[in-house]
Design a protein around this nucleic acid. Structure first.
Length: 586
RNA sequence: GGACCCGUGGCCUAGUCUGGAUAAGGCACCGGCUUUCUAAGCCGAGGAUCGGGGGUUCGAAUCCCUCCGGGUCCGCCA
């Protein structure tokens, strides 16, 4: 939609954004027409009407009201005043709306030109200056990552890719929570229990191998007072700043983390850097923050423990005291989080964190504290957890679907499909395609849904390879590759030859890609790219049905090859933004 | 008790921020399409009081209020 805002975001280069160019022209032609009727240029968003009516439209009700005339009268007076432009071919009035028709040849020429200039970079925004630090995933290293947590890396990584494409200099970061009671428990388990004491691990992968020790340690600490005492003693030593112990505990978490990272790597998620919470403590970065907090007038004390009463800041509930330190003066997580963010702000201009919905209050509290300290604020993207049909997943209960299992299942299912459909392919290539398809199916299934909606995990949905699914997108892309491969090298054709309705529809979508990337980045909503990618793939399939490429007359053939290549670039670009591999054939 | 998030055909989702012209897809079900660039595709059929009610507006899935249902959170844990 062509709200005035889109033309205000100056970082986007209009020359490389065909749809923005169309909107800008429509806006300027309309403004002139409106002014010439002595109507104030009230901004009315452009919308996309049913295609039988036009390509762009705006309602005249607001103008009508202002001028005290009937909307269809205003529309009929306005339409003839909108002259033909570079893109806008005609304007007609229908029932209070002015419908604009975009000249398909002009749009095609603009879009294919932009595609030719930018190549694979088509869709990218102007390189920006604002350094973004995107923290995501940051799951506690106590065991393998499960499907309940899967949205964080998938949303985070997709958002990272989209922000990069949009032009932001971006760093991704994983906060490794290697301090606290749970880590001490895990450490106690691996140092005090023998393999025969714990349940057999599901696999030798480090995160799976160590999980049973964590589970058993939890169980013992709950039921065996002696164990609990030992653990408490360890926690005290740890809290007392025992550097050797802190490092020892951290090294256990590093082992589990390496298993988690292997899993994430397999689904295409990697990080630029890691931040160990223990470093914050060992480097003495907590103390100064505590001192700054204590100096705040709003900070109060109870038995030596410091807290902020959040009630005046809009937080309500049973308990509004937000504790920053313990009675003994040692830090609590909120303090460490504040210290972490202050550290982050020295390394970026904008800090974004992908967080589960259960962290919403904590985020509000963090922002309140940062505001009180005169620091910048962090931005957050929240998502709801993936739940099983029978309820939420819990690591401690073992009621989880491990990501590793889901990946194996997805790839195995994909392998079956490939074998069925492409029995002639060599085994190694079948495996490659199966990996690409299976993993893409998982990621797409998560990223296509708005983050704040909860997802109920169902195998049949997660492993769906038809309809609105990753393989649908990948298949369309593979089709473009197939045609281009057989078509061979081609000279740029005449865009004006692309007059078929399916060609025009496809071209309009390709023209919008840069705009879509910009919007998705700005709104931090990766699913918008998923929706768009589906639209492109579906439209390409219609073009594929109706417009033979290779057998067309040479001039038309060349023009169509250009369109197919453009589709290839856009689909590949969109898939890349979603972290979905794009195999050349499948 | 309070705050926040979600509620769209049997199931899943887009559209909600930025209100507009008959609410758009997918899955499932039923019926079709392959001597033509990969049928993981395409076409057709049925299927929706956009959770209920009120309000604002020329116009509400979209904004406001309220109720209902589901979820999350309100630790000197992290």
């Amino acid at each position: 939609m062509g709200s005035p805002r889109s033309s205000d975001t100056g970082w986007r280069d209009v020359a490389r954004d065909p749809w923005a160019a169309v909107l800008a022209e429509a806006e300027s032609l309309r403004t002139r027409a409106v002014l010439s009727l002595s109507i104030p240029p009230i901004p009315v968003p452009f919308e996309e009407p049913d295609e039988t009516l036009g390509d762009l439209a705006f309602a005249c009700f607001v103008y009508a009201k202002r001028m005290q005339q009937a909307p269809d009268v205003i529309a009929s007076r306005l339409a003839p005043l909108i002259p033909r432009g570079k893109f806008i071919a005609s304007a007609t009035a229908t029932g209070g709306y002015v419908n604009l028709r975009v000249d398909p040849a002009a749009l095609a020429s603009e879009t294919l030109g932009a595609l030719r200039t930018a190549g694979e970079a088509y869709g990218a925004g102007e390189p920006g200056k604002e350094r973004v630090l995107l923290e995501h995933t940051s799951v506690n290293p106590t065991g393998p990552i499960h499907v309940g947590r899967a949205r964080n890396p998938v949303i985070g990584d997709s958002l990272a890719r989209i922000l990069r494409k949009a032009g932001f200099p971006l760093t991704t970061e994983y906060l490794v929570n290697d301090v606290g009671r749970q880590m001490v428990l895990l450490y106690w388990g691996v140092t005090h229990l023998k393999p025969s004491d714990v349940a057999p691990p599901q696999s030798a992968k480090e995160d799976h191998a160590l999980l049973p020790y964590y589970v058993k340690a939890n169980e013992l600490a709950e039921n065996d007072p002696n164990v609990n005492q030992e653990v408490e003693a360890l926690i005290r030593a740890f809290e007392g700043g025992d550097a050797d112990l802190t490092k020892a505990i951290s090294s256990v978490s590093r082992q589990i983390l390496s298993g988690i990272l292997q899993t994430l790597d397999r689904i295409g998620v990697a990080f630029d850097r890691f931040f160990w919470e223990s470093d914050l403590i060992l480097q003495g970065k907590i103390g100064p923050v505590i001192e700054r907090l204590k100096a705040l007038p709003v900070v109060q004390q109870e038995d030596g423990a410091y807290y902020i009463d959040m009630a005046p800041f809009g937080v309500k509930g049973r308990e509004t005291k937000w504790f920053l330190t313990k009675r003994d003066g040692t830090s609590l997580y909120p303090t460490r989080d504040i210290a972490y963010h202050i550290d982050k702000f020295t390394r970026c201009d904008l800090a974004i964190t992908v967080l589960g919905e259960n962290h919403r209050l904590e985020y509000e509290q963090l922002c309140t504290a940062l505001k009180l300290l005169g620091e910048r604020l962090a931005e957050a993207v929240f998502y709801s957890y993936v739940v099983l049909p029978e309820g939420k997943m819990q690591t401690r209960r073992g009621r989880i679907v491990a990501m590793d299992d889901l990946i194996e299942e997805a790839v195995a299912r994909a392998q079956e499909e490939v074998r069925k459909r492409r029995p002639e392919l060599p085994e190694s290539q079948m495996r490659e395609i199966a990996e690409a398809v299976g993993i893409a199916a998982l990621r797409y299934n998560i990223v296509r849904v708005q983050a704040e909606k909860k997802i109920t995990f169902r195998w049949e949905e997660a492993l769906n390879f038809e309809g609105n699914s990753a393989p649908f997108l990948q298949y369309a892309h593979a089709r473009t590759r197939g045609i281009l491969g057989k078509g061979g090298p081609f000279e740029p054709g005449d865009p004006a030859l692309l007059t078929h309705p399916e060609e025009a529809r496809l071209m309009k979508l390709l023209a919008r890609f840069p705009h879509v990337i910009g919007k998705a980045a700005e709104s931090r909503r990766p699913h918008e790219v998923a929706t768009f990618a589906y639209d492109v793939a579906a439209q390409f399939n219609l073009f594929y049905r109706d417009c033979p490429v290779l057998t067309a007359d040479p001039p038309l053939r060349a023009a169509r090859l250009g369109l197919v290549d453009g589709t290839r670039i856009v689909l590949q670009g969109a898939l890349d933004c979603l972290g979905l591999p794009a195999p050349h054939e499948m």
